[in-house]
Design a protein around this nucleic acid. Structure first.
Lengths: 209, 209
DNA sequence: TTTGAAAAATGAACAACGTTCATTTTATTT
DNA sequence: AAATAAAATGAACGTTGTTCATTTTTCAAA
């Protein structure tokens, strides 16, 4: 009888957490082996369930990758929390870029999923949700920081949204070129430090405004 | 006899051009339907040859996409030719960015292939060619333009290569965010003009240097 | 405790993919 | 006309994402 109870408890626990287990399995495979090795069969095998079970909890593969991409944004916004310690908006903007770049280069596939790959966006289209809440929230942080810079007298004569998008494009572009292996093939003298150097250059430029 | 000769000539022509036919077929499918609809079977069907024949002329799918990506760079460098008319280096840099952005937004999938997708780079790795000649040549144009700007007194106190990489990252980032549908989902007031507006903002910044 | 309906899990089956290679067809030379 | 070389072929293999009829499990009512 007691063993039956235990089995029931374990079984209950497994049932409730199966979606989480699938997601953890997917994330582990994704981070360790990349997106092309993260197949439904590999995910199912890793937790000892069947292929069909994965489809009980996720509509399709895009749904899984969208859930992973959301986890990535949770991690990124968690790493943004250190910015609360920086009161000066210009310094905070600089630190924000560093956190962003650091996250991108330390979590290359995850960054790719969050800001490049089509899968998460295709899931949104399927669900008729035209709201990319994760991106919206993240961009809001950037926009309000740039807004504070404007209020503090920086960026005189510049528009809020174009300037914020400019900053985002800058750091995203550097990270994207690095992750897609385009910066290494281009005959730059110090390829291993070019992202940092270019970001410092950009910050020097912004300081002059 | 004369018909035999004609057949021989036609046959010869077809044989010599088969690689080109395959590539044209691939490009048409790629531009019209995107990368996921460009399958070996579709390519072969479109020109009425067999699957195996494609593999006679191309090692694998990466080889085809690398060839397409090279065609993209040929087109881009062709569009860069109008820049020869612009003598002032700063004006030329500005015009270069506009040509680049225009190319990216009018050839989205091609741009993605050239600067984001892994296929062309994987082909280089397979062939032990760590030289991305197309990217190298294109970046050389940018670097020398920035160098001329420096020589003309612009960008005082800034390093050549980090500055050039900064400019590339800027325009690439904007195009990349736009093409991957990240800019539209982020709650910007004028999403349809944000790339142009941000580029104008960036040029205003560069003018101040 | 037994029963039976609802919920969950299953995995064989399907279509489509990239890739290979023994075979056939075509071209060229002898 | 025959022999040789080159080119083209498509059936077959191993994967992939996805579906769905079937089986198993769950759990409240009898």
């Amino acid at each position: 009888m007691s063993s039956k109870v235990i089995i029931a408890i374990v079984s209950k626990r497994l049932k409730e957490d199966l979606k989480v287990l699938i997601l953890n399995s997917a994330k582990k495979l994704f981070v360790e082996k990349g997106i092309e090795q993260t197949t439904i069969r590999n995910i199912a095998d890793a937790i000892g369930c069947s292929i069909g079970t994965v489809y009980v909890y996720f509509k399709d593969k895009n749904a899984i990758f969208h859930a992973l991409h959301t986890q990535g944004f949770i991690q990124l916004s968690s790493e943004f929390k250190v910015l609360l310690n920086v009161s000066n908006p210009m310094e905070r903007l600089r630190a924000m870029g560093k956190v962003y770049i650091n996250f991108a280069l330390k979590n290359r596939d995850m960054y790719d999923l969050m800001f490049n790959l089509k899968a998460p966006m295709e899931f949104l289209n399927d669900e008729k949700l035209h709201e990319w809440n994760e991106g919206k929230a993240t961009f809001d942080v950037l926009r309000s920081t740039v807004n504070e810079c404007l209020a503090a007298g920086y960026f005189k004569g510049h528009e809020l949204e174009p300037t914020a998008f400019m900053v985002w494009s800058m750091v995203h572009g550097m990270c994207s070129l690095e992750i897609s292996n385009r910066s290494v093939g281009v005959n730059i003298q110090n390829p291993e430090t070019i992202v940092t150097a270019a970001y410092e250059e950009f910050m020097k430029v912004m300081d002059k405004l």
